[in-house]
């Protein structure tokens, strides 16, 4: 099963690198121009559940890595075919200087809140996304807080050390 997916991907797309790490885990490295077509291709081959969209900040390489994790729903209602076991980790790198990427909400509707989250926490702008509004945070940070150069501990010190302690002699 995983061999045939590897073959199909590598024969259809040129620059795709497929690694089978384990029986059920396949990592697919994709150029950023190809992400949408690869995702569409895989969705048509029963990988129809986008489980997660994630982002990793590789600060030393000055790149963000966008990660799409695809699994498949069952084709029938009761029978397990074995393909549900597989999950694909589709990865692509984008520049950290001007983090911009295309939205995949056209292919997977449920990518919407994940992309909103990445926009908010990493500052990646998704073109074509209809609702890039804040999700969790209530303040506007200079550096999006999940980036590696945002030091949470330093931030807490900077903010809270300015507030004086109360005098309390009640011992």
């Amino acid at each position: 099963m995983n061999e045939s997916i590897k073959e199909q991907l590598e024969s259809t797309f040129k620059a795709v690198v497929v690694n089978i790490l384990e029986d059920s885990r396949i990592v697919v490295d994709v150029k950023k121009e190809q992400v949408l077509t690869v995702l569409k291709f895989l969705k048509d081959r029963n990988f129809d559940h986008l489980a997660l969209v994630s982002c990793v900040d590789w600060i030393e390489e000055k790149e963000f890595e966008l990660v799409y994790i695809l699994t498949g729903y069952m084709q029938g209602e009761k029978e397990y075919t074995g393909q549900e076991r597989l999950h694909l980790i589709v990865k692509t790198r984008i520049s950290r200087q001007s983090p911009q990427f295309e939205t995949v909400t056209g292919i997977f509707q449920n990518a919407e809140p994940y992309e909103r989250e990445i926009h908010e926490l990493f500052g990646v702008k998704f073109e074509g996304h209809k609702r890039l509004t804040p999700l969790f945070l209530e303040r506007d940070y200079e550096i999006p807080p999940f980036r590696k150069d945002f030091d949470t501990r330093q931030y807490v010190q900077d903010v809270f050390d300015k507030i004086p302690f109360v005098e309390n002699n009640d011992k």
Partner: peptide, 24 residues
């Protein structure tokens, strides 16, 4: 349910026996 990424009871209540304990 499939389009919106449902799992668990929300999906099993629509007839699909999708359960990770069985699948993986």
């Amino acid at each position: 349910a499939k389009q919106w990424g449902a799992t668990g009871q929300a999906l099993r209540a629509t007839g699909m026996a999708y359960d990770i304990r069985k699948i993986e």
